[in-house]
């Protein structure tokens, strides 16, 4: 970890801003994981980190390495695509698993089905 290589200022400023914004959103998401009350509310917390958090930090890395190596470095896009495509799938699976478990335990706070309750029943 010896040296941060000298970048021109016009590149250093966006890298710094993107890093701070991305880290800030990720931290807020994780604080939400602590502060929100129920499981279904906490399910929203990681998406802060996986949308703008990942996006900003990957963009910072792309700008940094592109200027550093004076060529376009875009392979960070792969991590971005991977995260964007996989996070919704895992969160949906988790939500369904939690719903299934809550229904098995007879929790009244979760809806019994996706259909609205029949008023005649």
């Amino acid at each position: 970890m010896t040296g941060i290589v000298d970048l021109p200022l016009w590149a250093a400023v966006p890298v710094a801003v993107l890093l701070l914004v991305g880290a800030g959103f990720t931290l807020t998401g994780s604080i939400g994981l602590l502060r929100l009350g129920s499981f279904y509310e906490r399910l929203h917390a990681p998406t802060l980190g996986t949308s703008l958090g990942v996006g900003c930090i990957l963009l910072a890395s792309m700008v940094f390495f592109s200027v550093l190596q004076t060529r376009l470095v875009v392979h960070e896009v792969l991590v971005g695509i991977l995260v964007v495509v996989t996070t919704p799938v895992t969160l949906m699976l988790l939500a369904r698993a939690a719903l299934h478990r809550d229904r098995l335990e007879g929790d009244d706070k979760v809806p019994r089905s996706a259909r609205p309750p029949d008023p005649s029943a």
Partner: peptide, 25 residues
């Protein structure tokens, strides 16, 4: 489903394939 879950604040929970009802949180 991917759009709704990836956006913070909404999460796709369940979908009823017969009637087309969606349960969101």
């Amino acid at each position: 489903a991917c759009i709704l879950t990836a956006t913070p604040g909404t999460a796709w929970v369940e979908y009823d394939t017969e009637d087309g009802w969606l349960l969101l949180h």
